[in-house]
């Protein structure tokens, strides 16, 4: 068996450069369809959520472009971060984000997701959302109007259609960096139930920063993973990092 985790597991790849011509055509068709049927996760993380009911209901009516709220993260495509995130919520957001199935998209709503906004000196809220999860689109403003939310959805649809909204792959390729940022806030005891490294191997998205000093902290939870019955990469394979072939974006 090869030591390259990107080759070790025989399953579907999502990297466009490795796809055959037919595969790429099918991908484009899938992207085209996907862009017209997006489910937004119903999670009100902050005050921007108050502009979502007008956006979704009769007046601005986003259902006409194929969007609708979805109650469970496992079936949702878009995670909408509606405003400021306290550290306590960020934990739940990261867990939610990891439960969503790829391809998945994150939109940061409002100034507070971009640079802290008017809560810049608050001890409770985070300042830069893209340090913790990859973000596809931002909307500035406090709070953004429904027209702006519509515009960002249309922009995202266009980018999905063209195959440009690939930020979610970055989470797998640089998982160690994202996890490091999360550990800086939550402490090194932090662990989410989802096995991101295993998913990266399955998706063949292991990059040079997928594993590192921060993911090494997760190893101590291995017995719990076993009890939960979660399949995780073998430690030998995880330690094989120096021999990895780097998959560039």
């Amino acid at each position: 068996m090869s030591t390259d985790p990107n080759q070790a597991v025989a399953c579907r790849t999502v990297d466009a450069e490795e796809r055959s011509l037919l595969g790429r055509v099918l991908d484009r068709i899938a992207d085209h369809c996907r862009a017209r049927s997006l489910f937004v996760l119903h999670y009100c993380t902050g005050c921007g959520a108050i502009e979502l009911p007008p956006t979704m209901t009769s007046r601005f009516d986003l259902e006409r472009v194929g969007m609708q709220p979805m109650v469970t993260p496992r079936q949702a495509d878009i995670l909408l971060i509606t405003g400021y995130l306290s550290v306590k919520t960020l934990k739940r957001v990261v867990m939610t984000y990891e439960q969503m199935q790829g391809p998945k998209y994150v939109i940061g709503l409002g100034s507070c997701t971009i640079n802290g906004g008017m809560y810049w000196n608050s001890y409770a809220t985070i300042k830069l959302l893209d340090r913790y999860i990859p973000v596809d689109n931002y909307i500035a403003g406090c709070m953004p109007r429904p027209e702006a939310i519509q515009q960002v959805f249309l922009d995202l649809m266009g980018r999905i259609d063209r195959g440009e909204a690939q930020a979610w792959k970055d989470y797998y390729r640089r998982y160690d960096w994202y996890l490091g940022q999360q550990q800086q806030l939550f402490g090194t005891n932090w662990q989410a139930p989802t096995d991101v490294v295993g998913e990266a191997i399955r998706y063949r998205l292991v990059g040079e920063q997928t594993l590192g000093s921060h993911t090494a902290h997760l190893e101590r939870y291995a017995p719990y993973y076993d009890q939960l019955g979660i399949i995780r990469p073998e430690p030998a394979r995880m330690k094989a990092r120096p021999q990895l072939e780097v998959v560039s974006r």
Binding site: N115, G116, W120, S122, Y123, I126, K127, L128, L185
Partner: peptide, 10 residues
């Protein structure tokens, strides 16, 4: 001071 210690700025 806490915010400057804990978070980074864009």
């Amino acid at each position: 001071a806490y915010v400057n210690d804990t978070f980074e700025w864009r």
